[in-house]
Design a protein around this nucleic acid. Sequence first.
DNA 1: TTGTTTATTCTTTTT
DNA 2: GAATAAACAA
Length: 748
Amino acid sequence: MTSPTNSVSILQRITLNPQQKEAVVCEKWPQLVFAGAGTGKTRVLTAKIAYLIEQRRVYPNRIFAATFTNKAAGEMRSRVENLVGISCKGMWIGTFHSMCARILRQQAHRIGYTPAFTIFDQDDQLSLLRAVMKSLELDERTMQPRHALSVISKYKNRCLSPEDVAGTGKSYYDQEAIRVYEHYQKALVQQQAMDFDDLIANAVRLLRAEPEVLQNYRTMFEYVLVDEYQDTNVAQFHLVQLLASGHGRVFVVGDDDQSIYGWRGAQVENILSFDRHFPNTTTFKLEENYRSTQAVLDFANAVIRSNTRRAPKQLWTGKAGGAGVIVARYGDDRQEAQGVVERVSELSRAGTKLGDMAVLFRTNAQSRAFEEALRRRNVPYVLVGGISFYERKEIKDCLAYLRLLVNPKDDVSCDRILNVPSRGIGAKSRDTLIEAARRSSRSMLEVIVAGDCTGLGAKSFSGLEELRSVFLLMRELVEQSRAPNEILQEMLTVTGYIDRLESEESEEADARLENINELMNALAIWSQENEAGGIAEFLEEVSLATDIDRWDKETDSLNLMTLHCAKGLEFSSVFVVGLEDGLLPSRQNFDDEAKLAEECRLFYVGATRAMRTLECSHVDQRWRFGSLMPMTPSRFLEAVPEKLFDTVDHTRVAAEALPSMLSFRPQRVRESKSGGGERRKIRIEPQHDEFDQDIVQYRMGQHVMHRTYGPGKILSISGFGPDMRLTILFNDGTRKRLMARFANLESS
DNA sequence: TTGTTTATTCTTTTT
DNA sequence: GAATAAACAA
């Protein structure tokens, strides 16, 4: 530890207001801090940890601190280190998920896992669930895999195992869902894999089942701190309780007004009734906002005011005045993007850095219009979130090979790369392999490596042999302790993955190659920085990485992200866009009051990100599902008193100045399947005229022109109306049978 | 068995 | 309009 320091030193090195200071030095546990937006929540948490280490002589490795993202954890660790001047390497600070994964790897054998277990992301979960449903002969149309997954997730978030919920299904559907859960869970264990929810649920299960393990961690973690407590779910609450209720030294920080993860199982009740679960809690309230101007804060307060069921609080700021909040109206989403980019340029010219500005939206899909507008104007930007790097096909393929190297039981990964790049193993051979694995209770890769799968065609057999040799080679390279990036490189060469992409010579393939290169670089850098780190550790980091983790505010580019992603961040200027009913609030949450309230808080979170200027916008019509939909301003805007913002109407100006922007597209009329079928039943005689208003009339022998096949002659016509098929002999001698509706033929 | 074309569905939000 | 599933031609 450091040399003795005098009792006020830590408090001298960090500026705290009286309330913050009280929370930091308080010795009466447990402690709860209600910290409104911008009131210095992170500052208090950091100071608290530093105070514990320096003043209370707590060893860093005795502290368990859960944050919402890895990035927040990393920042907090280095801030604490700066404050106390010693390394805090041993401190447990990270997301619940990453720390649970760490505990579970240490104790894996106790719950039927090896330490090398794989972590499944949503994509993997879905693949596994599909496989499970297939083996149960459940039709995906009767039970949507995604829905089943959300049901399972809800159970896991409440720490309910399949056994716990067995027999509780009210409807047939519920019972089937429980049956799927049971088999899904079995499959996870069989493949030595855990999904995100398992990381928490299994940690709780472990601590409950093994008293001496629990006792170990309880004595180890003398202090338990939790950031963003309003976003914890039941399982996380249980974990905190298990670790901390013995000694009661628990310190949580949060803001019920910023609870925006209810859909993921988070319970605001956790923070609202904290003192019920942790008796004799000392509660603090931070209400002085250091971030925003009075104008921004007044607006934000008005947004949240209508929400019921919140702990009473009133944020105030010393930053009187400030630019008024603007609410802009645009004709459509393209104009909105254009208008916002215009404003961004103005602010940029006036001295605000691009990196200090952000465009915040409800859905990822909204980013497109902005990206296009920004690219047109050559404004540098970063898009945070969306399809992350590690979710790209080519990257997931590479990772699947690596995952299999670490955990050969991972059938989801094996299934993924079985025929990637294609090596002649089709659906049939795949089923044969799966069946062989099932019969001998081995994993797919184990069967492949053993090379004893029978009943395959020659082509598939040699394909499997090829795959087998790839893995034998990779394992040999691991034996020789070759660098992980070299092993990946070797795999990509041997399998011909690189060759395939190179010979494709398309822009897309080039982008893929570039991504793969980037992955190899990341792997190389990573293995250099983490001497002890093997492939397994790299994979863990990758699967628990968040989008925001890779975000760097220092690069001076305009930030585009979802409202969810923006939580915890602040920007000088903020644009909250797409403020329309159906989008914010989302239409899917219209009928549920609690969900609607969460949408409102989402808007509040967005508004409170702004330090100096806040501009909101909504449009009259928006492109959705490929067609232009009329939109009305968000009900949350209507609830804000008009004196708190200035309205700017861009619709008329835009219509005159940008006639080309009003792109008119003919609405495509779609023939519904059932509609077509009914008509056919009614009509006994072929009567083309009713259908053929927009379909060209054809006759046998007619000469026609096809867009890709060129000129040809109609040989025969079958079916009628929307089902009409034409057999055409093209001039190059090929004969094709085409649907008249889609053939797009011209008479010639 | 494979690539291509066609049909359908879909959008919240993410550890 | 894009991603994905199904259907089809080769």
